[in-house]
Amino acid sequence: MVPRARRPLMLGLGVQTPLCMALLGLLAFGSAARAADIKVAVAANFADPFKEIAAKFEASSGHRLVASLGATGQFYAQIVEGAPFDILLAADRATSAKAVREGYAVAGTAYTYAVGKLVLYSPTAGVVDGAATLKAVAFTRLAIANPNVAPYGVAAVETMQALDVLDALRPKLVQGNSIAQTFQFIATGNAELGFVALSQIATLAGGSRWIVPETMHAPISQDAVVMTGAKEIAAAQAFLTFLKTPQARSIIEKYGYGGGD
């Protein structure tokens, strides 16, 4: 029984193997410009614009972008442990600079692709009314990103320090593990308001928001950098070049970011 059942299977494999090899060969050498899978670590605040830009880049280049979303500090820890990213789109300048200094990123590839804007946001109209909202403390929970790993969390803490309300607000704070989770706390209504990235709410109507003046925190200059261990260095560099094109810039600005380098 058993050998009889096995034989046709082996025969099938024998026929299929050359076909598979031929197909693989086609995939690898068939097209003139080889299509690459570029692994990108994307700071969570840049998720939406990245999706739009990636679609345009993939259509024009034939490459494929594989995005991981998370907090910048989280990515740094993963990169130190050998995470196979080709590009880091950080939410700050310090992390990419540190990665270059420590040899994880290619020197000279870092540049500011966006300048983020911090915004105090509530999905409910009338909740957020400028800095006065933070001083009145008429809420139970204020969500911020964990300042230990997320640059937008650092900016939120700096803003509360500048307004001299940090100590008063500390018991109200809940921390998202990234700016994405911070937004999720607010979106589910578990926190009435919170500090998020303008890009996360730029295309949302309604609610109430206060774009924090950039004098209240260090600028959120977001740097992109190619990783030393990148398997697709040429394709990665092509994507960073694409990020500078007017086409990509207009998408980045649509989401409320300031201009980069």
Partner: peptide, 8 residues
Amino acid sequence: RGARTLAF
């Protein structure tokens, strides 16, 4: 008890 959510 005057709170908003049981999360957190």
